[in-house]
Amino acid sequence: MQPSLSSLRAAGQILIILALAGGAAAWVLRGGFDVGQLQEILRHHRAAPLLFLLFHIATSLMFLPRSAMAMMAGLIFGVWWGGALAVAGSVLGAVTGFLVARHVNRGMLSLGETARFARLVRRIEHGGWRAVATLRLVPVLPHSAVNYALGLTRIRLVPYTVGTLIGQLPMTVAFVQFGAASDHLLDGKPDWMLPTALGVATLVLSSLLPKLLPRLGESGEDGGTR
């Protein structure tokens, strides 16, 4: 079976991100930036978690990749604390973009009324959180664009938030692991391969999850619309 175009694009994106991360790590190792000093400052500053969350929300509104924020969380705060902050930041950023689109738009534009997107929007609205989770598991769809687009539909906030959490969780965890692996590598710790392997395994799992979730609209539930 030949890989689909979306799978090839997803693999290409992952390779580009990893290449950029490797280049950044090489620059750091050559003395371009004292990341250890920055880590110590942020890890012990009381306001650091709140500042990270606020920065994550801001980047979500400005079309910056959440994968970079997840790697930053893993690099600075480690796997567990960094993972919690990355998951919270990605969900809060997504909810913020959703609410901004919904309340700024105020019914002026509905994607469900456009001929191009009407069918897809109906499937999303009837699919509820499952539909949102499925969309989030497609790595080629820009995070911020999905936030704003779903704000123009009739899907309710709770299903949107639940679907966003479930759909974004695997990739967020994976890139937190990559960030933690970079931290271990920079510190000269031999266990950097473990979080790297866990991150790759999580990405592979996330590519299989859309097949495990019901197809958009198959549930026949109307609970996703308000």
Score class of each variant (00 low, 15 high):
residue 146 V to K: 01
residue 27 W to V: 05
residue 151 G to L: 04
residue 51 L to W: 15
residue 222 D to S: 11
residue 12 G to I: 13
residue 29 L to H: 12
residue 126 H to S: 07
residue 216 L to N: 02
residue 37 Q to C: 00
residue 210 P to A: 10
residue 107 G to E: 02
residue 169 L to V: 02
residue 14 I to F: 13
residue 184 H to T: 05
residue 179 G to P: 11
residue 91 V to L: 10
residue 34 D to W: 12
residue 182 S to W: 08
residue 71 M to Q: 03
residue 134 T to G: 04
residue 184 H to L: 15
residue 21 A to E: 06
residue 137 L to N: 07
residue 66 R to A: 15
residue 91 V to F: 02
residue 53 L to P: 13
residue 206 S to K: 01
residue 135 L to V: 03
residue 216 L to C: 00
residue 197 A to M: 13
residue 54 L to P: 10
residue 59 T to L: 14
residue 130 R to P: 00
residue 32 G to N: 02
residue 199 G to S: 10
residue 89 G to K: 05
residue 154 R to N: 06
residue 198 L to H: 06
residue 158 V to H: 02
residue 44 H to K: 08
residue 49 P to I: 03
residue 24 A to R: 01
residue 16 I to V: 15
residue 177 Q to K: 01
residue 64 L to H: 07
residue 85 L to D: 12
residue 70 A to P: 00
residue 183 D to L: 08
residue 139 P to V: 10
residue 169 L to S: 13
residue 21 A to P: 07
residue 95 V to Y: 03
residue 115 A to W: 04
residue 132 V to I: 13
residue 147 N to T: 02
residue 54 L to M: 15
residue 165 L to W: 10
residue 106 R to G: 04
residue 32 G to F: 03
residue 101 A to L: 07
residue 23 G to F: 11
residue 177 Q to G: 09
residue 155 I to S: 08
residue 204 V to G: 11
residue 36 G to I: 07
residue 60 S to F: 03
residue 187 D to K: 13
residue 205 L to V: 15
residue 186 L to P: 09
residue 42 L to T: 13
residue 112 G to V: 09
residue 118 A to H: 11
residue 185 L to S: 13
residue 19 A to W: 13
residue 22 G to T: 09
residue 57 I to T: 04
residue 172 T to D: 10
residue 159 P to N: 06
residue 5 L to M: 10
residue 76 I to G: 00
residue 79 V to H: 07
residue 134 T to C: 02
residue 127 G to L: 08
residue 148 Y to T: 03
residue 110 S to P: 00
residue 65 P to V: 08
residue 222 D to T: 10
residue 136 R to S: 09
residue 44 H to L: 06
residue 130 R to V: 07
residue 201 A to L: 14
residue 161 T to R: 00
residue 135 L to G: 01
residue 168 Q to Y: 00
residue 116 R to K: 06
residue 185 L to Y: 15
residue 85 L to Y: 12
residue 148 Y to L: 06
residue 103 H to I: 00
residue 46 R to F: 13
residue 21 A to N: 05
residue 209 L to F: 04
residue 175 F to C: 14
residue 6 S to W: 06
residue 174 A to E: 11
residue 123 R to H: 05
residue 76 I to H: 00
residue 60 S to D: 14
residue 214 P to Q: 06
residue 204 V to S: 09
residue 75 L to Y: 03
residue 53 L to V: 15
residue 28 V to Y: 01
residue 59 T to Y: 05
residue 127 G to R: 06
residue 47 A to D: 04
residue 16 I to E: 11
residue 93 G to C: 08
residue 218 E to W: 00
residue 40 E to W: 01
residue 81 W to I: 08
residue 159 P to I: 04
residue 134 T to A: 05
residue 1 M to S: 03
residue 111 L to V: 02
residue 144 S to V: 04
residue 97 G to V: 08
residue 149 A to V: 10
residue 10 A to E: 07
residue 178 F to A: 07
residue 119 R to E: 12
residue 117 F to W: 11
residue 29 L to Y: 05
residue 132 V to Q: 05
residue 109 L to V: 13
residue 217 G to N: 02
residue 89 G to M: 03
residue 128 G to S: 13
residue 74 G to H: 10
residue 96 T to K: 04
residue 163 G to N: 06
residue 226 R to E: 08
residue 106 R to V: 01
residue 52 F to G: 05
residue 145 A to F: 14
residue 188 G to L: 14
residue 171 M to A: 12
residue 34 D to G: 11
residue 139 P to I: 08
residue 16 I to W: 14
residue 192 W to C: 01
residue 109 L to F: 14
